[in-house]
């Protein structure tokens, strides 16, 4: 598992994501108004707020899925606004893992094949792919379901596979949009704990969009959005 490098001068992990004055509108509606944040390697950040506060839009901008109308997003040493579509795609392929509320596993692939796909897209050799897939499925506790198709998996199992897929290519940042939104409380708790453990084990930064207070609890920091602006920020003790 990779570890983020820390400088000799301080023990703060390096910044992996920096957003400055990000603004985004859809038609005439302003969704984000000058949002700024920073994320360090291995750090877990919760984005909370009511529906329509701009959480998912901010997440999409951070992941290069949406382009902000103004402001800047720096991903490690790359300014996302300088990249074209293919460039953004490359960043997503290489450095970002995404977890969705509705799992979004690919239905024609088995659990193992879903986890393997990011590795294939990153040109990882077959032998190493097989080993990583096996290891990840074991870590998330779905080894016996490796050959099942998503239609044959429970909600909890699907989200575990989705987490494994998101981490397969060892991304720098994990973006999770309401990962427990479609799970019962028990499975939700299991998934949150898994995210926390894996984030620590792999030193992967996590941005977690959530309505759930319990989800926010696994994070080091919480940013609360209201009407597209940061209404509050707190760090977990």
């Amino acid at each position: 598992m990779s570890h983020a490098a820390s400088t000799d001068r301080d023990f703060e992990p390096p910044l992996v994501l920096t957003a400055r004055n990000v603004t985004k509108s859809y038609a005439d509606r302003v969704v984000l108004r000058g949002v700024s944040l920073e994320l360090r390697a291995g750090e877990r950040l919760a984005l909370t707020g009511a529906s329509g506060s701009g959480k998912s839009t901010l997440l999409n901008c951070l992941g290069g899925v949406d382009r902000p109308d103004a402001g800047s997003i720096r991903f490690e040493n790359i300014f996302l606004e300088t990249l074209d579509s293919d460039g953004l795609t490359e960043v997503r392929r290489r450095d970002i893992g995404t977890i969705f509320q509705f799992f979004h596993l690919l239905p024609t692939l088995t659990a193992a094949e879903n986890v393997e796909l990011p590795l294939q897209l990153n040109g990882v050799a077959a032998k190493e792919r097989a080993e990583r897939v096996r290891s990840l499925l074991e870590r998330v506790g779905v080894t016996d379901r490796a050959d099942a198709f998503p239609g044959q998996l429970s909600g909890g199992e699907m989200q575990r596979v989705a987490i494994a897929r998101a981490l397969a290519h060892r991304p720098t940042v994990l973006l999770a949009d309401e990962p427990t939104g479609n799970l019962d409380s028990r499975n939700g708790a299991i998934i949150l704990e898994l995210l926390r453990e894996l984030s620590d084990e792999t030193d992967t930064a996590l941005v977690l969009v959530t309505h759930s207070g319990a989800a926010a609890q696994i994070c080091h920091r919480e940013i609360h959005l209201r009407d597209g602006q940061i209404a509050g920020e707190r760090e977990k003790d």
Partner: peptide
């Protein structure tokens, strides 16, 4: 469409 969106999020280019 959903499948296409997921593939795009995983890093498959539109081309």
């Amino acid at each position: 469409r959903n499948e296409i969106a997921v593939l795009r999020s995983l890093g498959v280019t539109s081309r």
